[in-house]
Amino acid sequence: MIKVKAIVFGGTDFIGSHAVEQLCLKGHEVTAVVRQSSDTSFLDSLGVRVVKVDFSKAESIGRIIKGHQIVYNCTADANLSTEVNLEAPVELKLTKKIFKEAALNGAERFIQLSSIVVYDFKTNKPINESYCIRPEYPIQELLLKREDVVQEMGKETAMETIILRPASAIGSRDKNSFFSRLFKNHIDNKYPILKNGQTKVSLVDTRDIGRAMEWLGNYKLFTKKHNLFLLKGFDTIWGSLKAAIDEARGTVANVHDLSRIVEENKQLSYALNTFNTNRIWNDEKMRNLGFKIKYSQTESVEHAVRDLIKRNVI
Rank of each mutant, 00 (worst) to 15 (best):
F178G: 03
V255P: 00
E83L: 13
K266V: 09
L142K: 06
D283W: 09
L268N: 05
V84C: 07
T12D: 06
K224C: 10
V20C: 11
R181L: 12
G233S: 12
F9C: 05
I7A: 08
K26H: 14
H18N: 13
W215K: 07
E136W: 02
N278A: 12
I280G: 04
A248D: 04
K97N: 12
V33C: 06
D13A: 15
W215Y: 15
T236R: 05
K195T: 07
T157F: 05
A78G: 10
R35A: 07
F275T: 03
V252N: 02
L25D: 08
Q151V: 13
K224T: 10
I170Q: 10
V149N: 05
Q297M: 15
K266F: 12
M153E: 11
K125Q: 13
A103F: 00
Q36V: 11
R63S: 13
G154Q: 08
G47V: 10
E160A: 03
K310H: 14
A6Q: 11
K57M: 06
A212M: 05
L164F: 02
R260H: 07
N196Q: 15
K145Y: 08
M1V: 06
T95S: 14
V118D: 02
F178I: 15
H186V: 04
N105D: 09
I162E: 01
I193W: 00
Q297H: 06
F222N: 03
V118F: 10
K100I: 08
